[in-house]
Design a binder for these strands. Structure first.
Lengths: 130, 130
DNA sequence: TCCTAGTATAAGTAGCAACTTATATTAGGA
DNA sequence: TCCTAATATAAGTTGCTACTTATACTAGGA
């Protein structure tokens, strides 16, 4: 039912920016407070603290990072949910993959196939964008 | 000091656009001539043939699609190389990953800061920085 | 050869997103 | 309480990029 969906869209949109990818790489090494991220990224890309804060917001809303408050500090870390959405999207290109429904159905018992095909529209995928 | 990939950078940049993601999804179903892609994407997003052609160019240069000429037609298909670069980038977030990139970023976090701060113009576009 | 189909490139424009500086918020210490 | 540190938000600016229309290329058929 997760039609490889909105989560992957948001995640790819967010990861389309090199600064945000850098932030993800950094957080991949471990949790860090926003200030440390700003300092490192600022040094690397020459951007300000607000700029980094705005990037962190985008990553947050894309489900790619988590935040944990501690005093006035906010510790950011990688959120596996967003990354999982990306991996799921990539799976469609794996060998033998023919469509989102097929992938779902393969995981389910084969007997349930007809029933599912009967009570839902044939091509759910097409509704991505207007 | 090589990043996990310039290839991954280009691929993520390319996949940051929803139209190009849709093209990838379409090609994931099988090879198609540029005209068919343009027709389907045009119907879906309301964009012109040149627009789609430009998107295909970006995907090509990112190593995400392959082209095969046949007469005046050009058949596009998914290129696994670009996708592999994306998967490789994602692997760093797998449990217990420690790779070559970690070293680079650790160094960045430490000493290189002052030097970069010193010779960087105030209003630099972040894309000129490596 | 000329014409047409299929596709790519040229050139120009508009909108958005990634910045900027300035300020608001919030938690904790003196 | 006031001050400071840490971070987020506000408001404004600018350059990139995704579009547009027009045109150039290229292969094959009449």
């Amino acid at each position: 039912m997760t039609e490889t969906g909105p989560a992957a869209e948001a995640a790819f949109d967010a990861l389309g920016d090199p600064v945000r990818r850098r932030i993800m790489e950094l957080l991949g090494e471990g949790e860090r407070p926003a200030g440390a991220v700003a300092e490192i990224l600022g040094a690397h890309f020459g951007i300000s603290q607000p700029a980094v804060s705005q990037h962190l917001k985008v990553l947050r809303e894309a489900g790619l990072v988590t935040v944990r408050a501690e005093g006035t500090r906010r510790f950011y870390g990688v959120d596996d949910d967003g990354l999982a959405a990306v991996r799921l999207w990539l799976e469609r290109f794996a060998d033998g993959f023919t469509g989102p429904l097929d992938a779902l159905e393969t995981e389910l018992a084969r007997g349930k196939r007809e029933r599912r095909l009967a009570d839902r529209p044939a091509r759910t995928r097409r509704r991505d964008v207007a």
